[in-house]
């Protein structure tokens, strides 16, 4: 129960932070960090995968409503949760993580290298879908890739910062 409450509070903080602070501050053309993906990285591994998808959709729509970008955030959140589920089922051994006393992928569970690949891959895929839908042009593919890459680095830095602040 406390875990669920913690997730709801985290979701609200991240949503308002994204819409009222990060969307309002001009950080340059290439940099648009979206640390709210920390919420999806904090989902317990045994959490129902269908509920995860619905939460991703509702949370994405909530951010879309607050920031006036209909559908872009919800589509990329759904995509992120789907990819995360695929990666988790393929590369992660639930039982050994349970034995370690952890509930989700962390730096401690599989080491720095795996965690770096994991967080970079998921963040990049989320941001790529987001910027592809935002730019919506094949001819802008290089701009999409550069913006995705720079924003991914920004997002990962903020996610690691929040992880250390909230001790997630």
């Amino acid at each position: 129960m406390i875990d669920r409450l913690k997730l709801i509070v985290l979701a609200l903080i991240l949503a308002f932070l994204q819409s009222f602070l990060l969307e309002q501050v001009d950080m340059g053309f290439w940099l648009r960090p979206m640390p709210y993906i920390l919420l999806f990285l904090s989902f317990p591994l045994n959490f129902n995968k269908y509920i995860q998808l619905v939460i991703a959709f509702v949370f994405g729509t909530f951010i879309d409503l607050l920031s006036g970008s209909f559908g872009t955030n919800s589509a990329s959140c759904v995509f992120l949760v789907y990819i995360k589920q695929l990666v988790d089922s393929r590369f992660v051994d639930f039982d050994s993580i349970k034995l370690q006393g952890e509930r989700y992928i962390n730096i401690r569970t599989k080491g720095w290298v795996f965690f770096a690949y994991y967080i970079f891959g998921l963040t990049f895929s989320h941001h790529f879908v987001f910027f592809a839908l935002d730019f919506f042009e094949f001819s802008s593919i290089f701009r999409i890739l550069i913006t995705t890459f720079v924003s991914t680095l920004g997002t990962i830095s903020l996610v690691l910062l929040f992880k250390s602040i909230f001790r997630i």
């Binding site: 991703a56 879309d64 559908g71 919800s74 759904v78």
Partner: peptide, 8 residues
């Protein structure tokens, strides 16, 4: 869900 978002 993805299709619904893209539709929006």
């Amino acid at each position: 869900l993805f299709g619904f978002s893209v539709n929006q």
